[in-house]
Write a protein that binds this DNA or RNA. Sequence first.
DNA 1: TCAATACATTGCAATATTACGATACAGTAG
DNA 2: CTACTGTATCGTAATATTGCAATGTATTGA
Lengths: 118, 118
Amino acid sequence: MKNYIKMGVTKTDLFTEKQNELASVAKVFAHPARIAIIEYLLQSNTCFNGHLVEELGLAQATISQHLKELKNSGIIQGTIEGVSVSYCINSQRWAEIKLRFNLFFEEFTPPSDYDTCC
Amino acid sequence: MKNYIKMGVTKTDLFTEKQNELASVAKVFAHPARIAIIEYLLQSNTCFNGHLVEELGLAQATISQHLKELKNSGIIQGTIEGVSVSYCINSQRWAEIKLRFNLFFEEFTPPSDYDTCC
DNA sequence: TCAATACATTGCAATATTACGATACAGTAG
DNA sequence: CTACTGTATCGTAATATTGCAATGTATTGA
């Protein structure tokens, strides 16, 4: 069984692999600090080698923890660059996740009379 | 301040309204049971009035709790229909959330030499 | 009215998340 | 080697999430 982000007492075995995967990725996005980190990397649009601690207002240990989760999910990657680390979006993984969410959102194709039913 | 889904000891005040909102919606998707419920409603493509408890393997109380969170986020809506309740996707809210995620995913436009940098 | 049905709410136990200080570690400069 | 810098990890407190049994509530059918 795949090693999903742990989910409380969640009974992952009741659900499909796809459902667990989507939930797992959504969980990574489910924190504003991680959204902020991602958007920072998205906007810098290159390898970022800098001062996220000053950028966000969180402690260094906290940011490091969030970065670790982002790395674990494959969304970002980091390479050691001398004394510091360069982070950037993993473009392939990003495309993959984007597609997965798109497919999910496209699953809804309501008929024209949809809104009259409840 | 808006009433987001509570976030542990998360310091929401450090982030923008948009970041907190996106994280809040992602949090709703961050559980396979809720994904499963949503997909069930998506696929039935109409007002569902039925037996989610038998469909998923969770206790009635647990499902009720997940439905409540989905209702709170506006993703689904329910109307009392005699002895039971009909649930369906709120198509307007769905479109809103879809757009929000699309914009987020579109924020990444890597230059051609992107993958060489880290 | 009374029982049955369907769902919501409450209360609780087990577990995960978030945050941060303290500390470890690795690379660089001197 | 030593000090410094940037990051990771550990330990821990505060809080949230998940799941379920028990219970409450509202509607239907007899």
